[in-house]
Nucleic acid binder design. Structure first.
Lengths: 191, 191
DNA sequence: TGAATTCTGGACCAATCGGTTCACAATCGC
DNA sequence: GCGATTGTGAACCGATTGGTCCAGAATTCA
């Protein structure tokens, strides 16, 4: 009946995700997307409805992958180590290009607040969920709920700061000492 | 010879600054600017060259006003109180609309990195200058230079985080406890 | 008042934007 | 093979983008 194999959908989405992550929503033109995804206009609209829908999909995907990242770390380490690893891992080892892309949720909140509030608030919602995850890890580590809430709020602030900072392409790894200091504070508060 | 009084230039720039601050560079169209500034197209180009130049000017102005803000606080309080006030003042008292606009330098870094690197790196440069100001205030408060450097880096992370967070229009004032916790840490580190 | 100068509203421009349409090519069941 | 079905490239669309241009209004000097 039909043509079974078209283009590799998940690969195309990945390419789009990278573009949106790096350049944001507005600066990524349809032409950019088509070139990166290696497909034509009509295939694009047939498969993804429109640019905004695809962005939404990529944003969801990004959030999902971030939580997977934490879950995987948690499976291999203590709650606090997993948490600290989540902050430090982004900046150690082989410096990848991604290190300078920040966080797509943070980027979207900044770029789209006041421009497309639906997209911005969805990104903000995902950040709130991430903060909840921070909190539950802190509670697993023995913090009282209220204390875990406050510390999670602090960690989210640090997280947002790190993602902004990483977009600045500063030389060296200037975020590591503040991260270490923050976790010293957290560990001493919990113990 | 000429027509002496035209439109109020500084007022027009202020209006443009607010627009760029709220909506960012790309989402602010020329039509938006002209409407807000209350001037015509030709006057705009005669006075400000083009949109990008005006944005640059507004960014410079924003950075200058932020440093003035700190200087004024410093004139009336101790180094540490001035510093803490800079972080807390943005969110207490009458909640103004500005509270949700974040920081134009942070916004520009996020929006324009990878899109217009010259603009982005200028914004980043101003953030670096602000961090230096943090550091000198910490040194004034008695911190050793190396320690002041690390604490200033932490404060810049918190600062960036706060500005991101403020764009999310979260209910309440969820940033105050983390700020307080951070300054407890700083004060105990210095004392 | 009249000439000189300057500022400005609005018409105009090419380029680009995201999105639609359609004829054709490619693959399927048979 | 052949008809049916479906994915796709390319032409096309109106809207909007940032930017230019110029005729005329406004103001100053003489």
């Amino acid at each position: 009946m039909a043509r079974p194999i078209q283009f590799d959908r998940s690969k195309a989405v990945d390419r789009a995700l990278v573009l949106f992550w790096r350049k944001g929503y507005q600066a990524t033109s349809l032409a950019d997307l088509l070139a990166a995804m290696g497909i034509g206009r009509s295939s694009f609209y047939a498969a993804f409805t429109d640019k905004r829908s695809l962005f939404l999909h990529c944003l969801d995907l990004f959030a999902q992958r971030v939580t997977e990242l934490i879950d995987r770390a948690r499976a291999e380490a203590s709650p606090l180590d997993a948490l600290q690893g989540f902050f430090e891992r982004s900046f150690v080892g082989t410096p990848s290009a991604r290190d300078h892309w920040g966080c797509m949720m943070v980027n979207s909140v900044i770029e789209l607040a006041g421009v497309d509030d639906d997209l911005a608030s969805r990104a903000s919602h995902y950040l709130a969920a991430l903060q909840k995850r921070f909190q539950s890890l802190l509670e697993e580590a023995g913090a009282a709920p209220s204390e875990a809430g406050e510390l999670a709020a602090l960690l989210m602030l640090i997280n947002e700061g790190i993602r902004v900072s990483s977009r600045r392409k500063l030389p060296g790894a200037p975020h590591l000492p503040p991260i270490a200091a923050t976790f010293r504070l957290i560990r001493s508060a919990i113990a």
